[in-house]
Design a protein around this nucleic acid. Structure first.
Ligand SMILES: [Zn+2]
Ligand SMILES: [Zn+2]
Ligand SMILES: [Zn+2]
Ligand SMILES: [Zn+2]
Length: 753
DNA sequence: TTAAACGTTCTC
DNA sequence: GAGAACGTTTAA
C-alpha cells in the first residue's frame, strides 16, 4: 500500500513523436482540427487531430523511478532483459513508475502490457491480487486484466493439423498459466479477485453501485478504496468500466448462443467473431470440447472450407491467439523472465512493442483492449494525486484492478477554483474512463446490440468524430526485430528473417496464426505487413476491439468487413487509422455504420464496395460522395481517387449516377447490378460524362428497368471492356451482344436470361 | 514562455 | 452515454 499510495497519481502520457500518426501533419479537416484556432475554430476542444492519434504514448521525459529517482536507463545496456530491468515501468494498477531492477520483489511477477510502452501491472499489485485472475469454467485458469474482459474464446479451429499444433501449444500454455496461477494463489488470495472483475451479470450491477466492496470479493483493495471519500465517484468510474464490460460479455454470450444455434441448425456456420466463437477454444470453456468435435464433424460434412476460411481469417489476425492464451509467454517464463504479453518491450519504441502482433492480438485480447479504449493505459486512477501529489485515497482505489478504473474523487472539480489546486497540480486522475473525448479505443461500444439506435442517419451533419480515438494500438512494426531466429542453444538459425518471411508468404492466414504461436520471434515476424495485405473479416458477426487493434497493426491494403456488425464508431475509428487503405468492402453492413465514412478521410481509397448496404438511399450516397458542405474550401470529395465502386443491390435511383459522375472522376469499374431503380437515364448520364472514357467495367445486371436504349449509349464508353447486362429483362439478347459494343478484342458483354 | 493536447468533468 | 469543454501537464 504504501507503495501504492505513491501511485495515486497517474502520470499523463505524451505522444511518442515517432509513430506514423505522430509524424504526419494535421489533416485540417477532422473535427478536432476544425476546432483549432489555426484552422479557424474556437480552440475549445484542445484535442489532437484524429489522424494524429499517437499509437504508442510514452511516459514523459520527466518521469523518474519511484525508488531511485532516476530516469529510464535502458539505453545504457544491450540485452532486452537488461533494457527491461532498467526501463521505467508504469503500473496500471498503482500507477507507480519504477525500474524493475529497483523492485525488491521478483519482477517476474509483473505482467507487462505490450500494448503500451513501459506499462505493466507491477509485481506488487499482482501479488496483492489486484490483478485479475480468472478462473475459467473448465477450471482452467487464466489471468485477465481488468480491462479485458472477455473470456477467452477462440475462434474456430484451424486446420486440423494446425489445430493440433495449436492445441498442443495451448495446453502448454495453460500449464504455464496454471503454474503461475498456483504461484499467485500461494501468494494471494484467490482468483476470486479475478472473478470479480468479470463478474457476470447481475452482480456487476451491484458492483457498480457499490463500489465493489468487499462483499463481492475480496478485492485486494477493497479496503483501500473504501476509504476514498469520494468513493461514490470512484465507483462511478468503475461502474463505467464494469458496465462496458458487462455489456461486452453479454453481447458475446449472445453471439455465442446465436452461433451455436445457427451452427446446429445449419451447418454452414461461420465462425463467429472472435468473441463468439468461443467454442472451439481450448483454453476455456468446458463445454467446448464436445462442441469442437461436433464442429469438426460438421466441417467435414460440409463447408469445411468455409469454416476453415473463417477460422483462418480470425486466426490470421491473431485473434484466436488473443483470446486464448498467450503463446509466447511461456518461453519467456521459462527463461525466467517476466511475463509479458508480448515480447519484451522497449521503452519507447513502437517497434519493440509490437512484437507480437499475433501475440499482440492476443495480448490485446488480454489486455486492454476491451474497454478501454482509452484506458489501456492506465486506468486508473487515482485520485487526485497525480503528480506528485498524493492523494489521499488514491492508493486504495487503485487497488483493485478494475478498481483501477475508479475514478477518484469528486471533489476536485468543483472547484477548479479552489481547492483543487492546492497542490500544484491537481490531480489528474486518470481514469481512463471510457468516454471522453477522444479517448477511447477500439470500441467496444458498438458491440452492444443496440446500435440501431442512431436513428437519424447522418444527414449532412458535419463530421463529428467519435470520441474514441485514443486507444492505443501499436503500429505495425516497421521491421520486426530479430533478423535471425534465436535457438534454444543460444545460437541462431541460419535462415534470415527475410527468408522466413518468404516462407510465411506462402502460408494461409490460419497457418500464419499458428506460426505466431510458436515463438516470440515468429510471432513478431508474422506481423509483417507484407503478410497481411488483405484482411477479410466478412461475415464475422461482431467485430471486437481486439480485432480492430489487430487490423490497425497490420495496416492492410484491402479490408473486407462485409456483412459484419461493425458499428459506426468502430468503422470510423478504423478508417482514421488506415490511411493507406486502398480497398474497403462494406457489403451488407447497415448504413448507420457505413455512414462513418462520411466523416472519414481516406484519400487513398481506390475501391469501395457498398453493395447491399442496408438502408442506403440516394441522399446518403450524396452525403458520402459530396464534400462537406460546410466546408468552404472546396474539397474535392472524399473518394475522388476511387476507381472501383460497387453499389449492387441498392435502392438508389438515377440520381446517384450524377453523383458518381461528379465526384468520382477516375472511376473505371462500376457495379450497379440489382439496382432496380436504375434506368437508361443513368446510362445516359454516365455515357455523357468524362467517365465514358474511363469506365472499363460496368455491370447493370439485374437492373430491370434498363432497356435496349442504353446499348447505343454504352458504345460511347470507349474503354469499356466488360459490360454485364444479364438479367436485364428489357434488354433484348441481340442488343446485348458483344459486337454491339463495337470493336475490341477484349470486350465482352454478358447477356443472358 | 507558449503551443499542444491529455484526461477529467460538465452538459445535454 | 456521447460529446463538448476545460484545467493542467508536457515539450520545447
Ligand atoms: Zn485533423
Ligand atoms: Zn506516436
Ligand atoms: Zn530505480
Ligand atoms: Zn502496481
Amino acid at each position: 500500500m504504501s507503495g501504492r499510495a505513491s501511485a495515486g497519481a497517474r502520470r499523463r502520457r505524451t505522444r511518442c513523436r515517432r509513430c506514423q500518426a505522430c509524424v504526419r501533419s494535421e489533416c485540417g479537416e477532422c473535427h478536432f482540427c476544425k476546432d483549432m484556432k489555426k484552422f479557424g475554430g474556437p480552440g475549445r476542444m484542445k484535442q489532437s487531430c484524429l489522424l494524429r492519434q499517437c499509437t504508442a504514448p510514452v511516459l514523459p521525459h520527466t518521469a523518474v523511478c519511484l525508488a531511485c529517482g532516476e530516469a529510464g536507463k535502458e539505453d545504457t545496456v544491450e540485452s532486452e532483459e537488461e533494457k527491461f530491468s532498467l526501463s521505467l515501468m508504469e503500473c496500471t494498477i498503482c500507477n507507480e513508475i519504477i525500474h524493475p531492477s529497483c523492485l525488491k520483489m521478483s519482477r517476474s511477477e509483473g505482467i507487462i502490457n505490450e500494448e503500451i510502452p513501459n506499462c505493466w501491472e507491477c509485481p506488487k499489485c499482482h501479488r496483492e491480487g489486484k490483478t485479475s485472475k480468472r478462473r475459467l469454467d473448465n477450471g482452467e485458469v487464466s489471468r485477465w486484466k481488468l480491462t479485458d474482459d472477455p473470456p477467452p474464446s477462440k475462434k474456430k479451429s484451424l486446420d486440423d493439423a494446425l489445430r493440433t499444433d495449436s492445441t498442443k501449444r495451448k495446453k502448454e500454455k495453460e500449464k504455464m498459466e496454471v503454474k503461475k496461477e498456483e504461484r499467485e494463489k500461494e501468494k494471494d488470495p484467490p482468483q476470486e479477485s479475478g472473478a470479480k472483475k468479470k463478474i457476470k451479470g447481475a452482480r456487476e450491477k451491484h458492483l457498480k453501485k457499490r463500489v465493489k466492496p468487499s462483499s463481492e470479493s475480496p478485492e485486494p483493495n477493497g479496503p483501500t478504496q473504501s476509504q476514498d471519500p469520494s468513493s461514490s465517484s470512484s465507483s462511478a468510474g468503475l461502474d463505467q468500466r464494469w458496465h462496458q464490460r458487462e455489456k461486452l460479455e453479454r453481447f458475446k454470450r449472445m453471439c455465442q448462443l446465436l452461433e451455436r444455434a445457427r451452427a446446429s441448425s445449419s451447418s454452414s456456420s461461420s465462425s463467429s467473431g472472435s468473441e463468439s466463437g468461443s467454442d472451439s477454444d481450448p483454453p476455456s470453456h468446458p463445454s467446448s470440447p464436445s462442441h469442437r468435435d461436433q464442429d469438426q464433424n460438421r466441417e467435414k460434412d460440409q463447408n469445411r472450407d468455409q469454416e476453415h476460411e473463417r477460422s483462418r481469417r480470425l486466426a490470421e489476425l491473431g485473434f484466436s491467439a488473443s483470446e486464448d492464451s498467450e503463446p509466447d509467454p511461456e518461453e519467456e517464463r521459462r527463461s525466467g523472465r517476466v511475463r509479458r504479453t508480448g515480447p519484451d518491450k522497449d521503452p519507447e519504441q513502437d517497434e519493440a512493442e509490437e512484437e507480437d502482433h499475433g501475440v499482440a492480438a492476443r495480448s490485446l485480447g488480454l489486455t486492454a483492449v476491451p474497454e478501454g479504449l482509452n484506458l489501456p493505459r492506465r486506468s486508473q486512477n487515482g485520485p487526485e494525486a497525480r503528480n506528485g501529489r498524493p492523494r489521499a485515497a488514491s492508493e486504495k482505489e487503485i487497488g483493485a484492478n478494475f478498481g483501477s478504473n475508479h475514478r477518484h474523487r469528486p471533489a476536485r472539480n468543483r472547484n477548479r477554483t479552489g481547492a483543487a489546486v492546492s497542490g500544484a497540480r491537481q490531480s489528474q486522475s486518470s481514469t481512463g474512463s471510457s468516454s471522453t473525448n477522444g479517448t477511447s479505443g477500439p470500441l467496444n461500444t458498438n458491440l452492444g446490440p443496440t446500435r440501431p439506435k442512431r436513428s437519424p442517419p447522418p444527414a449532412h451533419v458535419p463530421p463529428r468524430p467519435p470520441q474514441m480515438e485514443r486507444h492505443l494500438v501499436r503500429p505495425p512494426p516497421p521491421c520486426p526485430e530479430p533478423h535471425r531466429l534465436p535457438l534454444n542453444g543460444g545460437g541462431q538459425h541460419s535462415l534470415t528473417r527475410e527468408h522466413w518471411i518468404r516462407i510465411f508468404q506462402n502460408l494461409s492466414q490460419s497457418q500464419l496464426s499458428v506460426c505466431m504461436s510458436v515463438c516470440r520471434t515468429w510471432s513478431r515476424w508474422c506481423c509483417d505487413q507484407r503478410l497481411w495485405r488483405r484482411i477479410d473479416l466478412s461475415r464475422q458477426r461482431s467485430i471486437t476491439p481486439p480485432m480492430l487493434s489487430s487490423i490497425i497493426r497490420r495496416q492492410p491494403v484491402s479490408l473486407d468487413l462485409g456483412h459484419t456488425h461493425i458499428s459506426r464508431k468502430q468503422l470510423m475509428w478504423l478508417i482514421s487509422r488506415l490511411q493507406g487503405l486502398l480497398e474497403l468492402r462494406l457489403s451488407g453492413c447497415p448504413w448507420t455504420s457505413v455512414s462513418a465514412l462520411c466523416q472519414s478521410v481516406c484519400p487513398c481509397l481506390r475501391s469501395l464496395d457498398l453493395s447491399h448496404v442496408e438502408e442506403l438511399k440516394d441522399s446518403h450516397l450524396r452525403e458520402l460522395l459530396a464534400p462537406p458542405t460546410n466546408d468552404t474550401r472546396s474539397a474535392p470529395g472524399r473518394f475522388q481517387n476511387v476507381r472501383e465502386l460497387c453499389l449492387s443491390g441498392l435502392q438508389v435511383t438515377d440520381a446517384v449516377s450524377r453523383l458518381i459522375v461528379r465526384y468520382l472522376p477516375h472511376l473505371s469499374k462500376l457495379d450497379l447490378s440489382q439496382c432496380a431503380h436504375i434506368t437508361d437515364q443513368s446510362v445516359h448520364t454516365l455515357t455523357h460524362s468524362p467517365l465514358r472514357e474511363s469506365l472499363t467495367h460496368l455491370s447493370l445486371a439485374g437492373c430491370v428497368r434498363v432497356t435496349d436504349q442504353c446499348v447505343p449509349l454504352l458504345r460511347r464508353c470507349v474503354s469499356l471492356r466488360t459490360l454485364d447486362l444479364r438479367f436485364c429483362g428489357l434488354v433484348s439478347s441481340e442488343a446485348g451482344q458483344v459486337h454491339t459494343l463495337g470493336p475490341g478484342p477484349e470486350r465482352r458483354t454478358l447477356k443472358n436470361s
